[in-house]
């Protein structure tokens, strides 16, 4: 279990490739068996992993993907357990539908990262695109568990219809974050964009770096919410995010909303 399996592109990746990486399937497989797995969707064909990647190692659930580029999409999608580390950038659907395990991208990701995620952890060191941790288009429920930690900024529509779980963005979050979220939490250390929390039912948006609260939310109180303190402390310890004591001890204005829903949702705006 301790050795890493490494995947390295054998040739320049010059077009979109759906790359299926499933650490949990490699636990009992030797190098050449892993290379033989159908894992690459390109040009209307399915190809074995070894066709485009050099596989080193086997019989492990720890996988390192080297030389990643934004041409690779769906990497880590549907992973059940194990560990996946990606050196480089990824395209869309990175870690979509993860059920467990940890995926760590040491670069940026495209749209729909962590889409409809169910459990585990997805760490992104760079920026994320639109629909981070959002719902499958048209699905009633979005992400239903797990944690997404983005050290950079994230695009629009993050956490749409979030059902359960945590999305953290260290940088700024673009517009329409937490649209129609049902429950769960979104924490934004930077600036939270327009229209955050539209149609929120019971979810929580924590805006540490500024937010324009929609007119349909109603101001409730200013306080030091204990659950924010617990969450921020956890994030600093678990993921090493740059969260200072002042932030942890800050006061927040609590707004209830959204109108139309039972009003159990909240936006917490840090008092600066």
């Amino acid at each position: 279990m301790s050795d890493w399996i490494t995947l390295t592109p054998r040739l320049a990746l010059d077009g979109p490739i759906a790359l299926s990486v499933h650490p949990e399937r490699y636990a009992e497989l030797a190098e050449h068996d892993i290379a033989a797995l159908p894992a690459i969707g390109r040009d209307r064909e399915q190809l074995p992993l070894g066709e485009m990647f050099t596989v080193k190692g086997g019989r492990s659930t720890r996988v390192r993907l080297e030389g990643a580029t934004p041409h690779l999409h769906s990497v880590g999608a549907g992973m059940l357990w194990g560990e996946l580390v990606v050196d480089g950038d990824l395209g869309s659907y990175a870690g979509a539908g993860i059920r467990g395990g940890t995926m760590h991208v040491r670069g940026t990701v495209g749209d729909a990262a962590g889409l409809a995620m169910m459990g585990g952890a997805l760490r992104i060191d760079g920026d994320a695109g639109d629909r981070l941790g959002a719902n499958i288009p048209g699905a009633a429920k979005g992400m239903s568990g797990g944690e997404i930690i983005v050290r950079g900024s994230a695009g629009a529509d993050a956490g749409a219809r979030l059902r359960r779980g945590l999305i953290v963005v260290s940088g700024d979050l673009l517009r329409d974050g937490g649209r129609s979220m049902i429950a769960g939490s979104i924490v934004v250390l930077g600036r939270c964009g327009e229209n955050a929390g539209r149609g929120n039912k019971r979810g929580s948006i924590v805006a540490c770096g500024g937010i324009t609260v929609p007119a349909t939310y109603r101001y409730a109180t200013t306080y030091q919410p204990p659950h924010v303190r617990v969450t921020l402390t956890y994030l600093r310890r678990q993921y090493g995010l740059a969260i200072d004591q002042a932030l942890i001890a800050a006061s927040y204005r609590r707004y209830c909303g959204d109108a139309g829903e039972p009003g159990k949702g909240e936006i917490l705006e840090r008092v600066i």
Partner: peptide
């Protein structure tokens, strides 16, 4: 109308009619 606000608008129209 960005995608998100189009969805928010369409969703809110439905919600009003349903309610």
């Amino acid at each position: 109308s960005t995608r998100g606000s189009q969805l928010a608008r369409a969703s809110a129209l439905i919600a009003v009619a349903q309610s």
